[in-house]
Amino acid sequence: MPLNLTTATVAVGDQAPVLTHTLSRTDLVRYAGASGDYNPMHHDEPKAVAARQPSVFGHGMLSMGIVGTALTHYVGVGALQTFSVRFARQTWPGEELSTEITVTAIDGNVATLEVKLRNGDGEEKVVGQATALLGAA
């Protein structure tokens, strides 16, 4: 399994490359299909508006999935040991979302990372933590 980071190359404070994406309604439809989550709040604008939402909004798990993509690109596919988030705010079509992933601790061959997804105004959409295996130095 690819372990992209090693105990020799990683340090507390290191940051993963940022993944930035402007959310579209097509993204929501694609995630609905790929996940099997057909909650109309994520694709049916009239129903979302009737539920007093300004528009359709993103699946929380799409936000977590985008963070997961940036995270695995950084630590390596199969390196993750844990990954958890709290869903802080809804995401809206047109928002520019950016990942923010920072190494906060290293214990032996395991790194702890703080993970976030923010919009262009800096609003936190998801906030969480992950741990990942490091390769030998």
Partner: peptide
Amino acid sequence: DAVLDTDPIYRDATVAAAAGF
């Protein structure tokens, strides 16, 4: 695709096998 991940490891069996899966 839906989580914006274009990594061939999820699509190409040769790439996945080379990575040890």
